[in-house]
Amino acid sequence: MKQFDIERLVPMEIGGVDVSFTNSALWMVIAAGVVCAFLFSGSKKLVPGRLQSLGELAYEFVSNMLRDIVGEKGRPFFPFIFTLFMFILTANMLGMVPGSFTVTSHIIVTLGLALVVFIGSTIVGFAKNGVGYLKMFVPSGVPVAMVPLLTVIEVISYFTRPVSLSVRLFANMMAGHTMLKVFASFVVALGILGGWAPLAFMVAFTGLEILVAFLQAYVFAVLSCIYLNDAVNMHH
């Protein structure tokens, strides 16, 4: 579909690798710019204004989420989780603007983010627990005969984490946008007489999509926190 196409706005190549500035990259930059504008333009007053309140709301929201899931040991990862949440949220929300490009509707982008979380939490896990982190894969309190089987299952589930994390976000975004596109084509197909029904559906569905855009950013951040929690506070 046209809305998911990658266009090379500024073709570039370094050492045989294609590093073109694409429309995807443009919308990543816009998303980052919106996040920065949102967080920097707010004043720094004791009694906050509207914009400042929103920034502080986002801060407290992510901060509480991290504290509830990981605890105080998760403090050093707060900037990362915050950036992750704000970037995905803004990219999702910008995707709701007609004619825009949804960065998170590309599997490679969500996979990139998920791999950063996955590899990062694995490194943190080994750094905090040493080789003991491998105990993650051996469930405690099960019969010895079951241990090999369960270990295999645990290893598989561990390595599917980045896949499920990235596919969940990508699929939700792409499905939502595709659905809207399909119903939009119904509006055109049914014309002025019958087009009202799919149009009304689209309006309602757009509201749902905005909810999904927030929810998926939240889910991504929560799951990242949970993986981080496994790495920081091992309790397997």
Binding site: I6, V19, S20, A32, L113
Partner: peptide, 20 residues
């Protein structure tokens, strides 16, 4: 399309991370 997207994601995300 993977390479250019990943590279720009890395650049933008790292930049945003440090700004934050």
């Amino acid at each position: 399309t993977f390479a250019p997207q990943l590279i720009w994601l890395a650049i933008v995300f790292t930049g945003l991370y440090f700004a934050m």
